[in-house]
């Protein structure tokens, strides 16, 4: 039994349906899940099994059809759009497979954006962006446009952007899906560093190497969690 005080994310009977009647698709089907503070959780499964949908639900990008979702002591599945936006601004950071950087903004301006949205002054936002870019090894690339960066560098900018507001939870959707081996290794090391610093991570991935760095691995199939493996200390735990 997990200590409730340590649980950061808790999903209970979480369900997400798309469409109606015969066209109904259940992307997430009664999922129960807990993620504790400082934990790194990997979610694996075949394409279309509902991993990304689950991640979007956990971060408040989408609303569940039914079930409960908690972030810390706050129930978030019934929050208004306004409150969800504030939640994403303060408590959650996203990393996407396709990076989703704004092409017309430099790396530093992309990282600054969430800080400016959160109400930081331009000076503070700039200072913080430089600090984070330095942390991800891109201090000398701040003035470059995304089109002038490699895939790995773009993903590190995206990670920096996710970190800029010091969120409690990082949600990464196939963060190495568009990267070559060398870039994957760089991102992997970055996640390990973040995890070692106590950040909570939920990573959807197909990449065994990424999954291997997690504390725990859950596998999804047809919208449900079918397997859970505790990886810390090499002790596997079936759930």
């Amino acid at each position: 039994m997990t200590n409730p005080a340590r649980v950061l994310v808790r999903a209970h009977q979480l369900r997400k349906d798309y469409g109606h009647g015969e066209a109904l698709v259940r992307a997430v089907d009664d999922v129960d899940l807990e993620v504790v503070n400082g934990e790194a959780l990997a979610v694996m499964g075949p394409s279309g099994c509902g991993k990304s949908t689950l991640l979007h639900l956990l971060g408040g990008l989408d609303r569940p059809t039914s079930g409960e979702l908690w972030l810390g002591k706050r129930r978030i599945d019934q929050l208004s759009e306004q409150a969800l936006a504030e939640l994403r601004r303060q408590d959650v950071g996203f990393v996407f497979q396709a990076f989703h950087l704004m092409e017309e903004l430099t790396a530093q301006e992309n990282v600054e954006l969430p800080a400016l949205l959160a109400g930081r002054s331009p000076r503070q936002a700039r200072r913080r962006a430089r600090q984070i870019l330095d942390q991800v090894g891109l201090a000398d690339r701040g003035g470059h446009l995304p089109s002038a960066l490699s895939g790995g560098q773009r993903q590190r900018v995206a990670i920096a952007r996710a970190l800029v507001n010091e969120p409690r939870l990082i949600l990464a959707d196939e963060p190495t899906g568009n990267l070559d081996s060398a870039a994957t290794l760089g991102v992997l090391q970055l996640f390990e560093t973040l995890h070692a610093g106590g950040l909570t991570l939920v990573i959807v991935t197909h990449d065994e190497r990424i999954a291997a760095t997690a504390d725990r691995l859950v596998t999804m199939r047809d919208g449900t969690l079918v397997d859970e493996t505790g990886l810390v200390g090499g002790t596997a735990r079936r759930g």
Binding site: Q82, A85, H100, P114, L117
Partner: peptide, 16 residues
């Protein structure tokens, strides 16, 4: 639509 969605993913409200 893409820029706005990214901005919202990072905390911009629908009203903003």
């Amino acid at each position: 639509r893409h820029s706005c969605a990214v901005a919202r993913a990072f905390g911009a409200t629908p009203e903003q």
